[in-house]
Write a protein that binds this DNA or RNA. Structure first.
Length: 813
RNA sequence: GCCCGGGUGGUGAAAUUGGUAGACACAAGAGACUUAAAAUCUCUCGCUCGUAAGGGUGUGCCGGUUCGACUCCGGCUCCGGGCACCA
């Protein structure tokens, strides 16, 4: 055994061995319970960053831990390979997105392999390959035929100078990022998936996801946003028709003083026909980005139309306003405004001097706006009712007039999946003059995206390429045009978890193997995906279930949401240019140090500001561990302790060892608290270092400790533990060893330390036999000088609190 | 703006169910070894009063519940994530 810790040599040897022996190849034929551990696949941006190291080390630790615990483990890896950055890079470097993407994949794959992940690389997938995306094209056509995909117009960011659609990310302060032109909203036809048809199930099934963080479930619930309220119709004055609104506060109806519609609302368009000022205002509202955060933070602006409606219950004449704070896409695209009881309506009414009429009160001291529930007043026959009573009574009154009814409403909108971009999966639809929209038949799939293209920065190459878009109608054979939009890249990442189980199937999107592996037992990924990706993946799981491909209801049984690795206070990402490449770290200290440092730095769910101070410390620990084993085996091999009378020192060390075994198992398996698992092993190693040992028994205990340390740490630092094990136990392999079980006899203790407090303040401690009664403990505590000191007259003991095996608190006054 | 998190020494953090605040590390300082440096080892290390023993104080801020609060409750503040076309 070498005296120095030869990390390069060990890591290369271990990684070669795992590759040659196919150590991590997963198989469906096993009598062990299966464990499918999935980390969110990376976007091939060029190089790994610290967020990747964190994500994939967490997944690998859990995979290796479960393998040792006797599970049949699958840990796959792949590439979320379509997306906007490839187009930008292609323009910048005058190359094709495909070439750039494949080169990045090659480089990042090498980097991932250097991390020593226990990945089954046979199952590797890249979403930009026709073998992958043909199946989502197939699913698209199936769903289209079932009516779960439909077409409607939707608003996009339009750059009038570049003549192109912009992603929200490409709109900076209302201007196009390349042209600098003021961005406009433009309505274009797009395909939508009816995720709202699954809203109820997506909401209720959250209740069965016990292995998900409460935080994520809450965010999803709020995003789906089921509310209970009332639809209210305001009859138009001077013309036929009604203005419909949806409200969650029907109890405030008698306080409505105007109604407001979105700039895109039909009534706004109508009123603008005869009102040039209003037309100009509506045009102004159509400037700027479509992102909700921009809309919500914009200054509240509005303009009165010349239209009026009548209040459905009291017949009062209310003006119709156009307001930029009304969302066209939620509810009816119109609201009834009750300024006294709504923040935004209050701000708007104050600005434009609209009437503010209070109708709900909690007390006489209410200040407006008063947005809490309360009792009605100023509301005629409804005075004195509470929220629930008033909601019922007003809904009944509206129903009687046929001007409204109770209903629920989802905030969730259907998912627009069309993108006017090149580097994505072509939408498998053919537009035929006589047959209309025709889905491409399964036998003609995939619709292959041409990869040999030139990106000029304006528009998508396939929109200008007749050899792509000219085709014939699958139904009538006449000349027809292919759809040139591509799919949202969330489409690919919504089902990849199932494809890993059927990675090489040429006959189906997923096959029976998926029902062996699914659902994913442990999903690991960034908290930034808490809503969109995870919701879409849950939706796709249900879609795949309903077309008969899989049988599970939910895709991910347990979810670990990794905190972000921040740099300079914000998310590390290529678009922000603040990434840190782990390569230098791996080159200088090895993968084990990088992994150990990452796991030791913070608990996985916590966000982490990147700093490399501490890397040295992690490396130093591995060197000390190496040296401890070196010194131990230099004296010859020995068996681990099994029996014999031990002195107090050795007994205490064994106690600590077996407590550590229990703690580390709990930290890995239940708490996912890798940092404390590491620190408890460090404490154990510190204790071992203090122990003199030349005697046979103490060498046996030392052997027992070192063997177990190798096992406990092997999920985190697998290379060095494999090498150490080979030295400690010649002829055996660590991958054949199973997770250690703590020895209960080593953990028996007959004494216990009590902390003594006086009035909740620490004053001393007491070591007593475990068998002492509560009465004896109280007497012992009172007898201590450091307690007596606080009992001098006139102070008296009022009570004594004894927390078994922990603490005694003497309360004096 | 709305939804979800977070704030503990010089730094990363620990305290698992309301029960010893700061484990384990990093950095720093002092010392040992060395011709010297590196490496390694030993010690000190929240703030404050004190020579010491010991005391006071301290987990973003203000208030509350409790024998006891980093932990629970109310209000604020700052930072991060998401907001449907970044992934």
């Amino acid at each position: 055994m070498q005296q120095q810790y030869p990390f390069q040599e060990i890591e290369r040897a271990a990684q070669n061995e795992w590759a040659n022996k196919q150590t991590f190849a997963a198989s469906e034929s096993s009598d062990k319970p299966k464990y499918y551990c999935l980390s969110m696949f990376p976007y091939p941006s060029g190089r790994l960053h610290m967020g990747h190291v964190r994500n994939y080390t967490i997944g690998d630790v859990l995979s290796r831990f479960h393998k040792m615990k006797g599970y049949n483990v699958m840990q796959p890896m792949g590439w979320d390979a379509f997306g906007l950055p490839a187009e930008n890079a292609a323009i910048k470097h005058n190359t094709a997105p495909a070439k750039w993407t494949y080169e990045n994949i090659e480089h990042m794959k090498t980097q991932l392999k250097q991390l020593g992940l226990g990945v089954d690389w046979n199952r590797e997938i890249a979403t930009c390959t026709p073998e992958y995306y043909r199946w989502e094209q197939w699913l698209f056509t199936e769903l289209y035929k079932k009516g779960l995909i439909y077409k409607k117009t939707a608003t996009v960011n339009w750059d009038p100078v570049d003549g192109t659609v912009l992603a929200n990310e490409q709109v900076i302060d209302g201007r196009g990022w390349r042209s600098g032109a003021l961005v406009e909203k433009r309505d274009i036809p797009q395909y939508f998936m009816k995720i709202t048809a699954y809203a109820e199930e997506l909401l209720s099934d959250l209740d069965q996801l016990d292995g998900w963080p409460e935080q994520v479930k809450t965010m999803q619930r709020n995003w789906i946003g089921k509310s209970y309220g009332c639809e209210v119709a305001f009859p138009l004055l001077g013309q036929d028709g009604q203005l419909k609104v949806y409200t969650t506060r029907p109890d405030t109806l008698m306080g409505a003083s105007y109604v407001a519609v979105a700039a895109e609302h039909a009534l706004a368009t109508q009123a603008a026909l005869t009102n040039p000022d209003l037309a100009a205002f509506i045009a102004e509202c159509k400037r700027g980005s479509v992102a909700e955060a921009d809309l919500a933070t914009a200054e509240k602006k509005g303009m009165a139309t010349s239209l009026f409606v009548s209040h459905p219950l009291n017949g009062e004449r209310l003006p119709v306003w156009v307001a930029n704070y009304v969302l066209a896409s939620y509810g009816e695209g119109a609201v009834m405004a009750v300024p006294a009881h709504d923040e935004r309506d209050f701000e708007f009414a104050t600005k434009y001097q609209l009437p503010i009429k209070a109708v709900i009160k909690q007390s006489d001291a209410d200040s407006l706006p008063m947005t809490e529930h309360g009792l009605l007043f100023n509301s005629g026959e409804f005075d004195g009712l509470n929220f629930a009573q008033a909601s019922d009574a007003i809904a009944t009154a509206l129903s009687a007039k046929n001007l409204g009814q109770k209903r629920s409403q989802f905030r969730l909108r259907d998912w627009g999946v069309s993108r006017q971009r090149y580097w994505g999966c072509p939408i498998p639809i053919v537009h035929c003059a006589s047959c209309g929209e025709v889905p491409v038949p399964a036998e003609q799939l995939p619709v292959v995206l041409p990869e040999d293209v030139v990106m000029d920065g304006v528009g998508s190459p396939i929109k200008k390429d007749p050899s792509f878009y000219e085709t014939s109608c699958p139904q009538c054979g006449a000349k027809a045009q292919r759809e040139t939009d591509t799919l949202d890249t969330f489409f690919e990442s919504s089902w990849y978890f199932a494809r890993y189980a059927s990675f090489d199937s040429h006959s189906a999107m997923v096959d029976q193997r998926a029902n062996y592996w699914l659902p994913v037992d442990q999903y690991v990924g960034g908290i930034e995906h808490a809503i969109l990706h995870l919701l879409y993946a849950r939706f796709f799981n249900k879609l795949m279930r309903d077309v008969g491909l899989i049988s599970n209801d939910e895709p991910f049984t347990n979810l670990l949401t990794q905190g972000m690795v921040l740099k300079d206070g914000s998310k590390m990402s290529k678009s922000k240019g603040n990434t840190v490449d782990p390569q230098a770290l791996i080159d200088a200290y090895g993968a084990d140090t990088a992994r150990l440092f990452m796991m030791f730095a913070a608990p996985p769910e916590q966000s982490l500001e990147w700093a490399d101070s501490g890397v040295e410390g992690a490396h130093r620990f591995l060197r000390r561990l190496w040296k401890a084993v070196f010194d131990h085996v230099a004296l010859g091999t020995t068996a681990a302790y099994s029996s014999g009378e031990l002195n107090v020192e050795l007994k205490t060390l064994r106690l600590q060892l077996h407590q550590t075994i229990d703690k580390v198992a709990d930290d890995y398996g239940r708490r996912h608290s890798f940092n404390t698992a590491i620190s408890s092993v460090m404490e154990l190693m510190n204790a071992l270092a203090k122990m003199e040992c030349t005697q046979t028994l103490s060498r046996q205990v030392r052997q027992e400790v070192l063997q177990n340390v190798a096992l406990l740490l092997s999920p985190i630092v697998p290379h060095v533990c494999q090498a150490l094990w080979a030295e400690l136990c010649p002829g055996s392999h660590i991958l054949d060893a199973s997770w250690p079980l703590a020895d209960p006899t080593a953990m028996e203790q007959d004494i216990v330390e009590y902390v003594i407090q006086v009035n909740g303040k620490l004053r001393g401690s007491l070591t007593v036999a475990k068998t002492e009664t509560k009465m004896q403990l109280e007497q012992l505590a009172l007898a201590q000088p450091f307690v007596q000191k606080f009992m001098e007259a006139p102070l008296q003991v009022r009570k004594i609190i004894v927390v078994p095996n922990k603490l005694i608190n003497v309360v004096v006054s």
